[in-house]
């Protein structure tokens, strides 16, 4: 039992669950709970994105495009065409996954900056289409989204619900939903990393040619992880649209893509818990810096630069390294 807890999978997951369970009791108002939900949504997206960027070493500067597609398809299908939101969400995820599959083949042949360029282009094209086709998407003025519902049971952040005799606000139910999904997403990501796919991906990251030489079908695995991360983004796009009840093309924009990749790099590439920390910081930072007013932009840029210069591996890996250092010393001394 103790042994099991020490493995990153069970240990990390139970730590994460503990934090998620304790967290709502430390929050004093609905605004803080709302921010927590947004952190959760972003965290799930970047856990998916991290599989691509952190483990397979493939940069995507267009992931917000997938998130935007999911959000808008859900909003339009459930709103304009009256589909059930769950069906719309699944359909959107299949479409986005399909698109990622089709385009992943040629795009993922590209290396380094060309891959960044291509994914950036893909994201921008999606954003332009959403912004332009206003008869369908509402254009830059945005689109109102129906609340999430299942078999006629609607989950609106504004209603009251009763579960097992406890009265909960809609926001609290949303928190439970997103928190559970986060734990599930982390579990899924850790499983993928430990699977043959994950090992193949790490081989790709290390040296793609070496991986090919030993017989790994690198293209196959890269496309696979591209599709997985796109589906993560699409599903969270759909859920975030239903949660906020209103979306604008910003969700698919270039800036949002940059924000997502920054969460991954800042928190710690290839560290599933690290990128969650990245999401926490990047969602909270503007709220904390808001009091600085005109200095906000300056401070944000500076923090981003300084963190990346001094912790190029990202926050969590650097912090853990610091914590582990003394211990390593003792072990090496023992060995000596």
């Amino acid at each position: 039992m103790m042994q099991a807890l020490k493995s990153p999978r069970l240990g990390g997951l139970s730590a994460l669950s503990c934090v998620l369970i304790i967290l709502p009791f430390t929050l004093s108002n609905s605004f803080q709970l709302d921010v927590a939900i947004q952190v959760g949504i972003a965290a799930i997206v970047v856990v998916g994105l991290n599989l691509l960027v952190g483990f397979a070493g493939q940069i995507s500067l267009g992931h917000a495009g997938f998130m935007g597609m999911g959000a808008y398809m859900s909003a339009i299908l459930s709103g304009t065409y009256g589909w059930s939101p769950l069906l719309a969400l699944i359909f959107a995820a299949i479409c986005v996954g399909g698109l990622a599959f089709l385009i992943g083949g040629p795009i993922l042949r590209l290396k380094g900056h060309y891959l960044s360029m291509a994914t950036l282009g893909l994201g921008i094209i999606i954003a332009i289409v959403i912004n332009t086709e206003s008869w369908l998407t509402g254009g830059p003025d945005g689109l109102v989204v129906e609340p999430l519902s299942l078999f006629g049971w609607a989950l609106s952040p504004f209603d009251e619900y009763h579960l097992l005799g406890i009265s909960l606000s809609g926001t609290q139910v949303w928190y439970i939903l997103i928190a559970s999904l986060l734990v599930f997403a982390v579990w899924l990501a850790l499983n993928i990393i430990d699977s043959p796919t994950g090992r193949a991906l790490r081989a790709v990251h290390g040296s793609e040619i070496a991986a090919q030489v030993v017989g790994v079908n690198t293209a196959h695995y890269k496309v696979k992880v591209f599709v997985i991360s796109a589906v993560f983004a699409s599903v969270m796009g759909s859920l975030s649209a239903h949660y906020t009840g209103f979306i604008t093309p910003n969700i698919a924009g270039f800036h949002h893509s940059i924000e997502l990749i920054t969460m991954v790099v800042l928190g710690g590439m290839a560290s599933t818990y690290g990128v969650i920390l990245g999401a926490v910081i990047l969602v909270l930072l503007p709220q904390v810096l808001a009091d600085l007013q005109e200095f906000e932009m300056l401070a944000f840029g500076l923090i981003l630069m300084v963190t990346m210069i001094f912790m190029p591996k990202g926050l969590l890996p650097t912090l853990l390294n610091l914590l582990n250092k003394p211990k390593q010393k003792t072990t090496s001394e023992e060995a000596a």
């Binding site: 990390g12 926490v280 914590l323």
Partner: peptide, 12 residues
């Protein structure tokens, strides 16, 4: 590891 993660996250 569990305590370390919990500690770091809770502190932040």
């Amino acid at each position: 590891k569990t305590t370390k993660y919990t500690l770091a996250l809770t502190l932040t």
